[in-house]
Nucleic acid binder design. Sequence first.
DNA 1: ATTTAAATGCAACTCTGTTGCGTTGTTTTG
DNA 2: CAAAACAACGCAACAGAGTTGCATTTAAAT
Lengths: 138, 138
Amino acid sequence: MKGVEEILQQHSLKNTKVRKAVLSVLMRSDKGLSHQDLSRALDVDFDRVTLFRTLHAFEESGILHKIMDPNGIAKYAYTARPAADRHCHAHFICLDCGQVFCLDEEFPLGDMKVPKGFSKTTIDVQIKGYCNKCTAQD
Amino acid sequence: MKGVEEILQQHSLKNTKVRKAVLSVLMRSDKGLSHQDLSRALDVDFDRVTLFRTLHAFEESGILHKIMDPNGIAKYAYTARPAADRHCHAHFICLDCGQVFCLDEEFPLGDMKVPKGFSKTTIDVQIKGYCNKCTAQD
DNA sequence: ATTTAAATGCAACTCTGTTGCGTTGTTTTG
DNA sequence: CAAAACAACGCAACAGAGTTGCATTTAAAT
């Protein structure tokens, strides 16, 4: 597993406190984390806007991928695989609490047809339902 | 193709102006429409909140399904198939303009594994990329 | 026609995410 | 190692999606 500082350098992103802290938290998480999740998880209090911009920077660099939860809240997850290796992300999204879980399983869905003039970038599979905690509470 | 009023009745929803108008627009659309899209498409000006509540009611009844676009805006699309017939929705989502296109193609993805204690409801496939208009503008 | 429960409209609010701008800090280059 | 160059940060103010409470209206049942 690569180090945080190494990853930042590879993507020509400056090595700052926020970035190291955010990336470190996300690399250890098996769930997608929201802006709010992250600001709670971080010890130091960074500016709201800085955190938003950090997440954007990571997403554009391909370090993170974004998943929208059913409540319209963006969840970010660390992208272990390089962008070139086009595999198929799969996430479990809880319809109650909105948590996004990264699933291990992968899919050979490379040959999906899209309308004329459209270009594909990624294919995401979203399994929706209720997580263990939310199922138990019903 | 079933009539709007018949559908509302089948789901024990009262037959009101908003509902007939909204459902009618959505049944004719091959794209997912947002709250804003709909309030523009409707001739009569309904209250913002009423429109939100209408969409919720339709979603809970299974008449519509909701897809979140990358900007965190909910898009609603008419569910032609009954809920019992568990097929796999596929949507094309434009990373630039955020439009959600319903694709015809379907998938035999019934046997996906989820963690212990989790329950599946639906499986959505999202193909992300750039639509014909946004590809042309680059 | 009358009743009843659901749907509507209005006001006020919450929260995620954005934009502009001056300041700070990292990195590079002499 | 100092200084310039530019990216990243913090603050303030804003924009827009979606929500909640409550009074009023309307669809449907008796």
